[in-house]
């Protein structure tokens, strides 16, 4: 203990006092004043209003979800209708190859041209054109005389 007390004045002599700023008290006053500022009162209806707003927000969120859901359903319906329409179309398209195939048999007998049907007066002939494949072998009617 005596050892310590002997050193005390020496330490004090070596360590100069720390200066206190001139405005120390002013700063302290300011901080005291800030801490002492009155706390504004919260009205009684604060919680009531808060619950009202929460309720409104949740309703809004529900309506927003409902709107999104209906849009989704609408889009889904549209897509389903589109796909159905496409399938219908594609079902119609491959029907063509299912038509009965016409078998062409090789000609074994000479084809005689059909006798001309007498045309009715006032009506044009509706006879189908002769097939170029069928050889003309003449007929019962003589050919017209060559023009000069």
């Amino acid at each position: 203990m005596t050892h310590q007390s002997e050193h005390k004045p020496l330490l004090k002599a070596f360590l100069p006092p720390v200066p206190v700023p001139q405005d120390f008290e002013e700063r302290l006053w300011l901080r005291r004043m800030l801490q002492a500022l009155p706390i504004p009162t919260v009205p009684d209806h604060f919680e009531e209003r808060l619950w009202e707003r929460l309720h409104r927000e949740s309703q809004k969120a529900f309506l927003r979800r409902l709107g999104l859901l209906s849009l989704f359903v609408l889009a889904l319906g549209g897509s389903v209708a589109g796909v159905w329409h496409f399938l219908q179309k594609s079902r119609e398209f491959p029907a063509a190859p299912l038509r009965p195939v016409v078998q062409i048999e090789p000609l074994t007998v000479p084809v005689t041209p059909p006798s001309p049907t007498p045309s009715l007066p006032g009506r044009t002939s509706t006879a189908p054109p002769q097939s170029p494949a069928a050889p003309i072998t003449g007929g019962t009617h003589p050919l017209p005389p060559p023009e000069e």
Partner: peptide
């Protein structure tokens, strides 16, 4: 900044603040 803004109030209440060294 608050100190500067409220200096006149402080001086009104406690007297003039000595000038800074």
């Amino acid at each position: 900044r608050l100190q500067e803004l409220l200096r006149d109030l402080y001086e009104e209440l406690y007297g003039r603040v000595p000038d800074q060294p």
